[in-house]
Simulated scan of single mutants.
Amino acid sequence: MNSPSAHQARLIVTVTPNPALDVTYHVNGIHLGQTHRVSPPLERAGGKGLNVARVAHQMGHPALAVAPAGGASGTVFRTELEASGVPHRLIPVTANTRRSIAFVDTARDMTSIFNEHGLPLLLSEWQSLAAAVAETLDGSPDGTAPRCAVLVGSGSLPAHAPEDFYPELVRLAHRHGIPAIIDTSGRGILDAARAGADLLKPNHQELMDATGEMDLHRAARHILDLGARTVLVSAGAEGMYAFTAQAPDIHWRARLPQPLTGNPTGAGDAAVAAAAVALASGESHPEAILRAATAWSAAAVLMPAAGEISPRHAEVARQLIVTREENRP
Rank of each mutant, 00 (worst) to 15 (best):
A6L: 13
H7W: 13
H7I: 14
L32V: 13
Q34D: 11
R37D: 11
S39L: 15
L42S: 15
A45S: 15
K48V: 04
N51D: 11
H57E: 02
A67D: 02
A67R: 05
P68T: 07
R78V: 09
E82M: 12
V86Y: 08
A95M: 00
N96R: 04
R108K: 14
F114M: 14
F114I: 14
H117I: 12
W126Q: 00
L137R: 14
P141K: 10
D142H: 10
D142P: 11
G143H: 00
P146Y: 03
A149D: 02
G153Q: 06
S156F: 03
L157S: 00
P167T: 10
R171F: 03
A173C: 10
I181M: 11
G186F: 08
A193H: 02
A193N: 02
G196Y: 05
A197P: 00
A197I: 02
A210K: 03
D215P: 05
A219G: 13
A219R: 01
L226V: 05
R229A: 06
A237Q: 11
F243K: 02
T244N: 00
H251N: 12
W252I: 05
Q258K: 12
P259W: 01
G262L: 03
N263S: 01
A273S: 12
A278C: 15
A288S: 14
R291D: 03
T294N: 10
W296P: 00
A305E: 10
A306S: 07
A306N: 00
R312Q: 12
R318S: 13
V322E: 02
R324N: 06
N327F: 11
